[in-house]
Design a binder for these strands. Structure first.
Lengths: 328, 328
DNA sequence: TTGTAGGCGTTATCAG
DNA sequence: CTGATAACGCCTACAA
């Protein structure tokens, strides 16, 4: 069914139906009611594909995310999609993984769909491959990144102050009387490099010690468990561990427990993200809340504004805070 | 840029460019190469909105999900989106929540976009409101439900055998020597009613006892914690608890621990879904794996098949299995 | 207030 | 093998 079927039955032209559907003025009261009655009768709604074509805008945003199964990211995707929906935009969500080739490929697909704007969630999108693909496929459409930044005229970045956030974690542990803090890294992303920098700075400035960094070789529970067991046996005098993400820390908690040590007396643990894992573990995990929710929401607003040509700050930061629970 | 810009520069017609882009036969080798060179030069890809219009198919699926932040669902959404992507379909993912009005509204939006098919994740979509909306907005497009079923000619359901799954949980606990099992429900969905039925059947058939059901009034950690504390103080002789979902059980674990009881000696706990929460808790949670991954994957395949008019079974079930960990 | 005509960017049909 | 031409369904000048 099309507007013309409605038009025929209402004995008016297609333009009139279109006008009624879009609530435009200049339609006779009776005509409008007659048309509206038919619209209601058939539950007819205009074909958005056709509207997208003529309006040169599909009213659709693209959301790029490494993996929606990761709660940390799905929270962001949820908020951005909800916020965009409030303004009448649908969201095309793509799981790109971390490899450059597929990030670029999905940007291409989004450009073929001529989406109105793009949101990318995670610092993994702050890289040259994405930068190049954006300037190639989206030379002038707005692009917003949650926890990342690209220096382009139409790109907006909302960042977490991870470096100073982790620095405060080191400080907290120092105040708790901890003497030797070790750091466990996750995957290699700009975000994780910032966290690492915060830790290193903390060790040098606060402790005057050389940092001790362990590569987990992943960001899951198992990696956290395995790495922590290694730390416990191979490294002497460790009484605190900071993990790049909560799930690593969750594995760490179990490793410490299995070693018969007490938390936080013998060893204190800190995670990052303040995710749902943080309160499910026993003991509950102290975690740095990097405020991804605020980040995502801001990101969505910036994006929607940019799409409607209202300018805003190109780069902003959201401050993180430590949520203390039972592991410190 | 459009195909005509390419056509002009290549000194051919738009049709020829279209033919080259779609890899159709019947184009002179040299012409094809000339056009392809330009396509590459400008990184040009056809406007999918226009293609969608003329092809009467946007090559897009709609995915309805209550809340993508729930890992249980996001796993499903991920798998379905990936599988559809393999066949060239984008996915429009909507978080509908549990209320009927917004489920209907999102179905309307999807119908306005004329999506090729719909996947719904969760038994919450097995209800009259959705049934009516589907027959109204999608009288002939394929609809697949992961863990639900609607009796319509173009609807496909992939179900979990939750009832017998929970029944086996009761059996397992009986074999472990437990004498009094209590059940904690979650929200009111067809799926949760099936689980409850399995528990009730188990108690009557296996124990010859009346079931004892506690309403958690939610499906989160806090509700699990609170309800379990109440059970522990108000109900006598309970030595096993089955929870409708893992997160409730996670709260339950902590409640039992806080009461100074031992798991599983004094009290055994079982969750459902075998989610990531199940192995993050201490002790790790025994959980009924309802195979949502298999369910979703099957769902996606069924959907893609149906879209390409290849018929398949209308209703199938995936069998669940218990993953034993440390709480039984 | 209403209708006609043209165009949005493709694809498909049909001549040549 | 190639090019007009007419859809696809809608919106918007412009004209009446």
């Amino acid at each position: 069914m099309t507007i013309y079927d409605i038009a025929k039955e209402a004995e008016v032209s297609g333009s009139t139906v279109s006008r009624v559907m879009n609530g435009k003025a200049g339609v006779n009261r009776e005509t409008r009611e007659k048309v509206q009655a038919l619209l209601d009768k058939y539950h007819f709604f205009a074909n958005e594909t056709a509207r997208g074509l003529v309006n040169q805008s599909p009213r659709m945003m693209g959301i790029l995310i490494a993996d929606i199964r990761n709660t940390h990211y799905s929270d962001g995707a949820y908020l951005i999609a909800q916020e965009c929906a409030r303004y009448g935009y649908c969201s095309l969500i793509f799981n790109t993984g971390d490899d450059d080739a597929s990030k670029v490929e999905y940007l291409r697909i989004l450009s073929a769909r001529r989406v109105d704007g793009i949101a990318m969630i995670g610092s993994t999108y702050q890289c040259d491959a994405v930068r190049d693909a954006v300037s190639l496929y989206f030379p002038d459409k707005p692009v917003a990144i949650a926890n990342g930044y690209l220096d382009m005229p139409h790109a907006y970045g909302v960042l977490a102050d991870e470096e100073s956030g982790i620095f405060s974690c080191v400080k907290l542990l120092q105040e708790k009387g901890k003497r030797r803090i070790v750091y466990v890294t996750g995957t290699d992303t700009p975000s994780n490099r910032n966290k690492l920098a915060g830790y290193e700075k903390g060790m040098r400035l606060l402790y005057g010690m050389e940092p001790e960094v362990w590569q987990a070789g992943g960001a899951g529970y198992q990696e956290g468990y395995g790495t922590t067991r290694r730390i416990l046996t191979e490294s002497k005098g460790v009484d605190a561990v900071i993990y790049a993400v909560d799930l690593l820390a969750a594995g760490g908690i179990r490793a410490v427990l299995d070693s018969g040590l007490r938390i936080p007396t013998d060893i204190a643990l800190v995670g990052v993200d303040n995710s749902r894992y943080a309160y499910v573990t026993t003991p509950k995990l102290t975690s740095l809340d990097t405020k991804l929710s605020d980040l995502s929401l801001t990101c969505a607003r910036v994006l929607v504004n940019a799409v409607s040509h209202e300018d805003g700050a190109k780069r902003m930061v959201v401050f993180s805070s430590i949520v203390e629970r039972e592991t410190t």
